[in-house]
Structures are given as C-alpha cells and as structure tokens.
Design a protein around this nucleic acid. Sequence first.
DNA 1: CTCCTATTGAGACTTAGTCTCAACTCTGGT
DNA 2: ACCAGAGTTGAGACTAAGTCTCAATAGGAG
Lengths: 143, 143
Amino acid sequence: MARELLEALDQAGVRLTGPRRELAALIARRQGHFTAADLLADAEQRSLGISRATVFRLLELLADRNLVERVDLPDGRHAYVPCEPSHHHHLVCVSCGAISEVEDCGIEAVTAEAARRSGFEIQSHRLELFGRCPRCQNVEPRQ
Amino acid sequence: MARELLEALDQAGVRLTGPRRELAALIARRQGHFTAADLLADAEQRSLGISRATVFRLLELLADRNLVERVDLPDGRHAYVPCEPSHHHHLVCVSCGAISEVEDCGIEAVTAEAARRSGFEIQSHRLELFGRCPRCQNVEPRQ
DNA sequence: CTCCTATTGAGACTTAGTCTCAACTCTGGT
DNA sequence: ACCAGAGTTGAGACTAAGTCTCAATAGGAG
C-alpha cells in the first residue's frame, strides 16, 4: 500500500525522497481516516524530523492525484482517506473512524434530477455518509 | 428573513439582544453562502462593535437549530447558508456563490443501498453539489 | 423597576495551514 | 562514479480560523 502510493508518485514524475517514503509508510499503516495533525504526530513520535510543511505538501500532492481523498468530518475537521483514484464516496464510522468506500449506487440520477430542477450545470459533487460500522454496532448495539 | 431568524431564536428561549438583531440583519441581506469572516467583516465595516466570539457563537446557535447550514466549500473553507430547517441539500454556484436548495430527490435510496452493501448503520449524510447557476452560464457560457 | 442570568467584548490562546529561504538531495546525463 | 541543477526540505515566521476566560453589561420575567 505504501508501495502503491510511491509508485504512483514516481509515475507522476515526483521525486521519491526520504521524507516521502516515510510518510507513505505512516499513511499505509493507518486504519481509516486521519488528519494532517495525526500524521504529523506519528512522524514526531518516531523522531523522523519531518516538518509540518512537508506533511501538508505531501497530502496536497496525493490529493491532487486522487490517491488520498479529503473528507470533511461532521465536526468540521478535515481528514484524509487513502483510496482508489476512481470516483466514489465514503462511509465514515463515527465511533472508530473506519472508512468504507462506496462505488456509484445511483447518485448520478440524483445529481441529474437536481440539475434539471435547478437549471444548474453541475460540475462536481461530494457525498459523505456517517454512521456506525458493523463492528461498532456489535460492540455497543443500539446506542 | 431577518425576522424569521429572530422569531425562531425567540421561540427557542434565546435572548434577542442587540448584536443578535444586527447579525441577523446582516445575514438576511447576504446572497448565497458566506463565511464567518464575511460576517465579521460586514460588522466591522459598519462599526457595530461586535466581537469575533459573538459571531461564532451566533452561527453555532443558528446551526444547532438548522436555521443555517454549514457547507464545506471545495477549497476547504467553511461557509454557512441560511435555509429552511428541513432536511435538504445545497447546490453551490462556484462562480458567484449563489445557493439553491434541493429537496429530496432519491438520495434516500442511495444511502439505503450503501448501507445494505456495507453493513453500516447510517446516521447522517451530507451531499453537496457544485457547479454553475443558470445566470453564470449565460454570462460566460461553456467555460 | 429590579434582579438574576444570559450574553457580551476584549484579548489571550490554540490549532490549522501557508510561505520564505537557505541548505540539501534526488536523478538524469556524462 | 560523478556532477549539476532542479526539486525538495526544515525551520520558523506568519496568517487565519476558531475557542476560551472573565469582568462588565443588558434582556426580560416578575
């Protein structure tokens, strides 16, 4: 998974530097979504000497190439999710942070209908679903 | 429209203070979405002497009561949109910032399908549509 | 009119993210 | 292997967004 990120960056003509390899590894071992601050904390905990700016720069690179997607959490924070570079949406578990990807399941029809009603020319959309994953439902049912 | 906001706050047992009346009026005269910073700038321009904290506090009050909705712009900024307190989604014009509301148009089916596939128990969702409104399409067609 | 409580402004504080710049390090060409 | 130069980095200043505290103020119920 870290390998995939690095390969994709290499393809894009981006240099594979030490900090980038290390950050890719940190991202790979994360479960679910993470914030820039999380990643920064990981790096500091391991004394990798990676600066804040580098973390933000890499996340921007990855986001530009759709190797990571920005998700806006319900509380307003910005998080990132490693994912396939195809269009899809995310299910975010509000208990444990687990992420699940959802391929198209009819959203196109919804946007088309909205465009028709409003006269807007829709360029992009963002759908985020929040709830509890199967595991968390078992741990604390009916919460 | 400022009246509606104030009435709703009154209903909720919140005091109708000077700053709140003034901010409600500023919100009412805004077209489309606005950020907390926009509102703050409006207030400063008119020398209303309203502090940053008060602006954020009112926006939080309004958001809690669904009188205003938080929207995450594609560039990551947080904006607010005055709106009906029923569930719906927003179409945001990326050229002029105009907002249009969309009532349910089949999104429930999409979330149900996603829940079925993933096993998640979906609690909430957020759908934001970005594009160009009819007016902007006419001004600069096919951009 | 009075009193109590919600609310306010000021400003310190925290967190997120950007920017600059000199120093460093990939990588392609030799 | 070596070199040159363009891409990248760390440090830290800087900006913007948002929160918090606390003394002072002002709604509004009675």
